[in-house]
Nucleic acid binder design. Structure first.
Lengths: 334, 334
DNA sequence: CTGAAAGCGCTTACAG
DNA sequence: CTGAAAGCGCTTACAG
């Protein structure tokens, strides 16, 4: 691969001049420019981003890092798409670190991205008091948190109104006549879980329905746990008439158990999932879901990060996007 | 963030010595080492990967690039998981470029990864004569292709026996008594599409069943096209009794149309999809599918790439993994 | 408008 | 066993 030096030699100019035409900052004599451009073309020259990054000052590295808990989760795939698209449009490249709910691995990716000199990072904190991310903040990297905030820290965040979203879903179920409503929650330590539980409790309370503790099942946010906990729920001597599943992996797991047992949705049990998927209508029956747009969250987070990169003194803000209840056919009136 | 120089100053040694303890290559006096290690700890020093990469010779950059056509496709998500896991275990970081079936974007990511001085790349070529990847090969980067090979080029590839996989699926359908079998194919220009079509044709021919051209529908490999083409198929005056969908996006799209129309699977129509998903059992009925393990492909490709990075003169090889027909409940005997 | 030179943070022969 | 120095490929004041 050709270097600046080789281009300079071929064009009979100094490397400084080549650099100038590349970055077209300072004024360059049109003839000189033409010579250089020819040399660049002839040699098929591509600037070395590593050298550029090492040399240049902040916000010109055109690189951001994304640290996520679980790429298996379709929600995060949407987030990635949103981030990647706006990054690409702004000529930024994104590095993705998938930490699989493992804080050690999260730390490693955070460290690597720092030593890769990224301009900034978008992260979904492992939990509300994520020390690893605090360190990154101390090192003055631009950071925006998604999905979850950080307790007592002034940081950019893009999230969704989880409590309200769940509240609406549960009220909908109640309006259909359901009283025995189960909730398979996400991992207890993630802030979103607490918010969703709160929405659930608030709706039940508002309508004077007592919550049966047997019907609240904390999962570890995985497909398998969704399947298992749904089985437990179905085996209860007084099973629920409806179930709210706190993320799409859990929903899918629960659905599997429901079908395996030969239960009918919505005749035997109604179900609402948090997180809509682009193929929710391919489920049978089509799933009623609380939609949060991962794509939108990714887009917003990326724009916010770029803003933070270009004007570091910019004050932090918190964007809370609304969710939307998409009523399809997985719930019935009883 | 602390630099080598600061560590050296604090430990009262030269930067060369610090570098030595970091890379623990040459022998270092234990006392000196201890001093340096303390300084590293005190300063919370993290080596700058950018500088390391610029300086070091090949295969020590610990960075690979992955260029994929569509992160929305669950198959590629599995591939990413497989790659990421083995990369992580070997202390490599992966950069992911999603080119969304856009060759211009593919070229851009390929260029960027080259100028990021990656040790190597894993790519799913846009098609069999992908010029962009040829250029990368010319520049002597280690490359392994997945899912699809490159015509007339000696390159590492990890793929699956598409023809055989489809052949088996169609024979299974035929054994159930189906004759009017539709095929919604992938994008015509991708090699896997041709292979899958071949498997289809071979099975039909072997059993002396004439192919009705009306039943072969080339899609653009997307969810939407799967839905649309399925609608066309269902509207035929003589609709198929079974449909084979050539990738999981198409399958999901087709399923959506089937359910929308109130058709019953498998009573009204049988369906087999290429690509299994971890939540195929959450579909109703559970989907019969040709499984190719994206995770396995990713793992193999990553190991192969690492091997190629460490011993560049190593001869290229082509790994063809078998597929597996997972019989569940979406097909019936007629 | 252009060039010579310093320097980003490292690694690695080369001396000692 | 350790240090001084060169150099990876760039960008950017500083002169001219």
């Amino acid at each position: 691969m050709a270097s600046l030096k080789q281009v300079a030699e071929r064009a009979n100019v100094s490397i400084a001049t080549v650099s100038r035409v590349l970055n077209n900052k300072d004024i360059v004599n049109p003839e000189t420019r033409a010579k250089v451009e020819n040399a660049i073309r002839d040699l098929n020259y591509l600037p070395n981003r590593v050298a550029q990054r090492l040399r240049s000052t902040s916000s010109k590295k055109k690189l951001i890092g994304v640290v996520l808990p679980d790429v298996q989760n379709p929600f995060y795939v949407d987030v990635i798409r949103g981030i990647e698209e706006t990054a690409y449009r702004n000529q930024f490249v994104v590095m993705i670190g998938n930490f699989s709910q493992d804080e050690e691995k999260e730390r490693l990716y955070l460290d690597i991205f720092q030593s890769e000199e990224v301009d900034g990072m978008i992260v979904a904190p492992a939990h509300g008091r994520d020390q690893n991310i605090l360190k990154v903040l101390e090192n003055n990297f631009a950071v925006v948190c998604i999905d979850r905030g950080l307790a007592d820290v002034d940081v950019d965040v893009v999230k969704v109104d989880n409590e309200e979203g769940v509240f609406g879903a549960i009220e909908y179920l109640i309006s259909l006549g359901h009283k025995r409503i189960a909730h398979i929650t996400g991992m207890p330590q993630i802030p979103t879980t607490a918010e969703r539980v709160k929405g659930f409790e608030r709706a039940m309370k508002k309508h004077g329905i007592k919550i049966d503790p047997d019907l609240i099942r904390p999962s570890n946010s995985s497909y398998e746990s969704g399947a298992e906990l749904m089985a437990e729920l179905l085996s209860l001597k007084k099973p629920p008439t409806a179930v709210f599943t706190a993320n799409n992996l859990i929903t899918l797991g629960a659905l599997r158990t429901i079908h395996e047992r030969g239960c009918k949705v919505p005749d035997d049990i109604s179900i609402i999932g948090f997180d809509d998927m682009y193929w929710s209508m391919s489920l049978n029956p089509p799933l009623t879901a609380v939609r949060q747009s991962g794509y939108e969250i990714g887009k917003r987070a990326a724009s916010m990060l770029l803003a933070g990169i270009f004007t570091p003194q910019r004050s932090k803000r918190q964007v809370v996007l609304p969710t939307e209840l998409i009523v399809r056919k997985s719930c019935r009136r009883i």
